[in-house]
Amino acid sequence: MSAIVSLRNVVKTYTRGKQTVEVLHNLSLEIAQGDFVALMGPSGSGKTTLLNLIGGLDRPTSGEVSVAGERIDSLSSGQLAKWRARNVGFVFQFYNLMPMLTAERNVELPLLLTNLSGAQRRQNVQAALTVVGLADRAKHKPAELSGGQAQRVAIARALVADPTLLVCDEPTGDLDRATADDILHLLQMLNRDHGKTIVMVTHDPKAAEFASHQLHLDKGQLVEGDVKAAA
């Protein structure tokens, strides 16, 4: 299968005061289309930094990042924003829903960046909420939903514009085991049945088992080769 994500010799440094800290050291990586990859590693190993580079939230200090055949390392902030709107769906640990909007309004947000009509948007929102099993909660606000339901709404929001790639940062970090497993089953289903490529950062080895592959980072480098997930 062809690579949808490709990183070549990526270096990422941050400046803290007078100190420059290199978070990723000359990292190269490929993720195949349709893959479900878990990025693991201790705190400070550079997982989230790597995820941000793949998701176009940040740019490398040097090296190349290509996603879906497009070099994104040299895009401007505005170009990256447009690129993200077309290509990436984000799922965050704490859901990051807009508290004043209902579930359906939250899910609709990425579609406001498209040229779809109101009717088409409503149709797509309904479809996304149905996929995550929350069609009956469309009118509820985040405060009226459980953690698992809120994360499902966030996944529906990530899906609704049919992105190439789903980027998940600790998607089960705020959930109990049973709810976390439900969310992971949902992600697995999206990967298997809908062909979504998923890159997921997690601390949790049980969560990582739901992925097709695991990548381990330590001190800004991949420490071992692909590990086939048991699940």
Partner: peptide, 14 residues
């Protein structure tokens, strides 16, 4: 800040 950052992550412009 979080809401604004989330919107921008989704693709809303500055």
């Amino acid at each position: 800040a979080l809401e604004i950052a989330t919107l921008r992550a989704i693709g809303f412009g500055a």
